[in-house]
């Protein structure tokens, strides 16, 4: 019946290719996305509730949630500040090498995470170029949660820059002029006049950076060192459980990670949707 309804609707369409593209897309989505994800549900359904609770509330796993959340939050906040600064400098000022700096902002997305991981671990180890120097100041980075936050921050740099940049570019210069003509100081004018335009994009970018950091694996594991209860991130715990053939344990923890990131993504999408509608004048 659904097929018939769809066909009836399709016959009213002008453009060709509805059936073909629907068929290809649904086949692909079912085989590549949905089927593997249902296998996770299947594996979970074999666990009783108390078994599930036992697996996800193991003290070592709880410690990994804490480290992951803390490091991801610090990384996201760093990127909120750094991304805002970079977007501002790239949009508002001219300086030699600007195009190069702009292009470099995308490096963390283009560079494989494992490469970023070994490079940061080498740079910030106690013998590394930067780590040696920080060690003498009493600031060890490698094998601490700070190192984890650093790696997470590196891989999610582009999110804030690239969400704030276009909004800043589209901001009419009258906004500035009004504030400056009225005699507002720079910092005050920025907070009161520019920031209200930017903060929806800033929150979106920071949220995306946070979600990405929660799931990051390749960039983090090398610099983290994997000390139980201290520098083990949750994706590493899943990986370790898989290597021990503890599929039930890995799946239980994975379900927490998956549910958290999907919920956050949903919130970000709703937030962005509300904001976009308001921009286009519809809604409240």
């Amino acid at each position: 019946m659904i097929a018939a309804t769809l066909r009836r609707r399709a016959s009213r369409r002008v453009l060709p290719g509805f059936g073909l593209s629907l068929g290809v897309t649904l086949t692909f989505v079912s085989l590549i996305l949905l089927l593997p994800l249902t296998s996770l549900v299947g594996q979970l359904s074999q666990l009783s509730l108390s078994q599930y609770w036992f697996l996800i509330s193991d003290p070592r796993i709880l410690a990994s949630y804490r480290v992951t959340l803390l490091a991801a939050a610090v990384a996201a906040l760093f990127n909120a500040a750094f991304g805002l600064l970079m977007a501002w400098v790239l949009v508002r000022y001219e300086f030699p090498g600007k195009r190069l700096v702009d292009a470099l902002m995308d490096l963390p997305f283009a560079l494989p995470t494992a490469v970023a991981g070994v490079t940061l671990a080498t740079l910030y180890s106690s013998q590394g170029w930067v780590g040696r120097w920080l060690e003498t100041l009493g600031l060890p980075i490698a094998y601490t949660w700070v190192g984890i936050a650093l790696a997470m921050a590196f891989t999610s740099i582009p999110f804030v820059v690239r969400t704030v940049q276009p909004i800043l570019e589209d901001l009419p210069s009258e906004v500035d002029e009004a504030a400056v003509t009225l005699g507002a100081r720079d910092g005050h004018a920025f907070r009161r006049v520019i920031l209200p335009h930017l903060w929806p994009a800033l929150v979106t970018g920071t949220g995306l950076a946070f979600v990405r950091s929660l799931g990051e694996f390749g960039a983090v594991i090398f610099i983290a060192g994997g000390k139980p209860f201290e520098t083990e991130i949750t994706s590493l715990m899943i990986f370790v459980k898989l290597q021990e053939y503890d599929y039930a344990g890995a799946t239980a923890v994975a379900s927490i990670v998956l549910a958290t990131s999907l919920a956050l993504l949903l919130v970000i999408n709703l937030w962005q949707g509300r904001f976009t509608r308001r921009l286009h004048g519809g809604g409240a």
């Binding site: 593997p36 994800l37 296998s39 996770l40 995470t113 979600v211 929660l214 799931g215 990051e216 694996f217 390749g218 994706s235 590493l236 899943i238 990986f239 898989l242 890995a250 799946t251 994975a254 990670v257 998956l258 990131s261 999907l262 956050l264 993504l265």
Partner: peptide
């Protein structure tokens, strides 16, 4: 949104 490790797991 999915962590790469979770993608591998499924």
């Amino acid at each position: 949104a999915v962590s790469p490790v979770v993608a591998g797991l499924v």
